[in-house]
Lab assay of single mutants.
Amino acid sequence: RGFLEKAAVKKMAKAIMADPNKADEVYKKWADKGYTLTQMSNFLKSKTAGKYDRVYNGYVIHLD
């Protein structure tokens, strides 16, 4: 289950990176699912340092 969630989160993160207008909708879905910042950090780990920082930081702001 965790692997599928991670894959889904990364897919949506890539969608945000391609079209930032989708961010609020995606952040709301993640918040509704109760994803914590720790979970998001783990889901968005990448071999490329900083690749998903913008998405993660946007989610931090959304939760605030």
Rank of each mutant, 00 (worst) to 15 (best):
K51C: 07
M12H: 07
H62K: 04
M12W: 10
Y35E: 00
A13K: 01
K47H: 11
G50K: 06
A31P: 00
A49E: 13
K22M: 14
F43M: 13
L63R: 04
D64E: 14
K28E: 07
A8C: 15
K33P: 00
P20F: 07
K33Q: 11
A18W: 04
T38C: 15
K47E: 11
V60L: 09
V26W: 02
G50C: 08
I16T: 01
A15I: 13
K47N: 13
A18S: 13
F43T: 03
K28D: 06
Y56C: 04
K29S: 12
I61Y: 09
Q39F: 04
W30V: 01
D24F: 13
E25S: 11
F43G: 02
N42L: 11
K11R: 12
K45C: 15
A31E: 07
F43C: 06
E25N: 06
Q39I: 10
Y56S: 01
N42Q: 14
D19E: 07
H62M: 06
T48A: 07
D24M: 09
D19M: 06
K14F: 05
M40C: 02
N42F: 12
L4K: 14
A49V: 14
T36M: 03
K6A: 15
D32I: 09
S41G: 11
A49Q: 11
I61A: 13
K11S: 08
D32L: 10
I61H: 11
D19R: 04
Y27V: 01
V9E: 01
D19I: 03
D24Q: 12
M17H: 03
Y35Q: 00
R54K: 14
V55C: 03
V55D: 00
Y56V: 07
P20D: 05
K28P: 03
A18N: 08
D24S: 13
Y27M: 03
E5P: 05
S41H: 13
M40A: 03
L37I: 10
K10T: 10
D32F: 08
Q39R: 06
V55P: 01
G50H: 09
K33D: 06
G34A: 05
H62Q: 03
M12C: 15
F3T: 12
T38Q: 14
E5H: 10
F3H: 14
G2Y: 15
A7R: 14
A23Q: 06
K47I: 06
R54M: 11
K6H: 10
W30S: 00
F3C: 15
E25A: 11
V60C: 13
L44E: 00
L4E: 11
S46M: 05
M12D: 15
E5M: 07
R1L: 15
Y59C: 01
A8P: 03
K45S: 10
A31T: 09
K28Q: 13
L37G: 04
M17W: 04
Y35M: 05
E25Y: 09
Q39S: 04
R54I: 12
L4I: 12
K45D: 06
E25C: 14
V9Q: 01
A13H: 00
A23L: 03
K22T: 08
Y59E: 00
D53R: 05
L4F: 09
R1W: 07
N57Q: 14
T48C: 13
V26A: 08
D32H: 10
D64R: 14
G2A: 10
K14G: 06
P20W: 12
N21I: 09
K47P: 07
K10P: 00
Y59V: 01
D19K: 05
F43E: 03
A7M: 15
D19V: 04
T38F: 12
I61R: 14
D32C: 13
A15D: 09
M17A: 04
V26Q: 05
W30P: 00
L37M: 06
G2W: 15
K51E: 10
W30G: 01
D53K: 07
A18V: 08
G34Y: 03
K51W: 07
K14D: 13
G2N: 14
Y35W: 05
N57W: 14
D32M: 10
K33S: 07
V9D: 02
G34V: 02
D53C: 11
K51N: 05
M40N: 00
H62A: 05
L44N: 01
K22N: 06
K11P: 01
G58P: 02
A18C: 14
V55I: 10
A7E: 08
D64Q: 13
T36E: 03
K33R: 12
L63S: 02
M40Q: 02
N42M: 13
Y59H: 00
A49I: 12
K28R: 11
V9N: 03
Q39L: 06
K11Y: 07
A49R: 09
E5R: 09
K29H: 14
